[in-house]
């Protein structure tokens, strides 16, 4: 992925295959062409970002420009991933967008306290998801300036 000039990768942390597929389709529909790396668990995501575990030997990859993080996952859940990343000196600069079913006030508050950049509730309707992804693209790759990899 590191050879894709100009388009930095997005890390998608999502345990649900259906949601992963819906996300990919919505990226395409919203013309978001950045390469996507998919991690199905919290620990896989941490390994990927820290170049540990199965990623210790493989080819070097750049840090992603953005992390899209689901909250409710088995094992190390999104809250824990968020909290670990925001305590890591090197990784805490990566903007993290929470993308979850939960609209619980407690989740929203906790995620922002832990340092999430944005909190988005997954729209049930696919058209809603396309719209949301379109906004993510416009904002993070149009308006915002991102830190170096």
């Amino acid at each position: 992925m590191h050879h894709e000039i100009g388009l930095r990768a997005i890390l998608l942390v999502e345990d649900n295959v259906d949601d992963y597929e819906a996300a990919l389709r919505s990226f395409k529909a919203a013309h978001l062409y950045n390469p996507v790396h998919w991690c199905q668990t919290g620990s896989d995501a941490l390994n990927y970002l820290k170049h540990e575990g199965i990623y210790a030997q493989g080819p070097a990859h750049e840090r992603p420009a953005l992390v899209l993080l689901d909250l409710n996952m088995p094992g190390i859940d999104g809250r824990k991933v968020l909290s670990i990343l925001k305590q890591d000196r090197a990784l805490k600069r990566i903007p993290i967008i929470i993308l979850t079913t939960s609209s619980d006030e407690r989740d929203i508050t906790q995620c922002y306290e832990l340092g999430a950049s944005t909190y988005i509730q997954k729209p049930v309707e696919f058209d809603g998801l396309i719209k949301a992804v379109g906004r993510i693209k416009d904002y993070w790759f149009g308006v915002a300036l991102l830190p170096q990899a």
């Binding site: 597929e21 079913t101 049930v124 309707e125």
Partner: peptide
């Protein structure tokens, strides 16, 4: 009710998306 509803919504979203795809 809060928790159950959120957990119910996830497979529901999958169903709806799969039908559409």
């Amino acid at each position: 009710a809060q928790i159950a509803s959120h957990d119910l919504k996830e497979p529901l979203r999958g169903l709806s998306n799969n039908a559409r795809f």
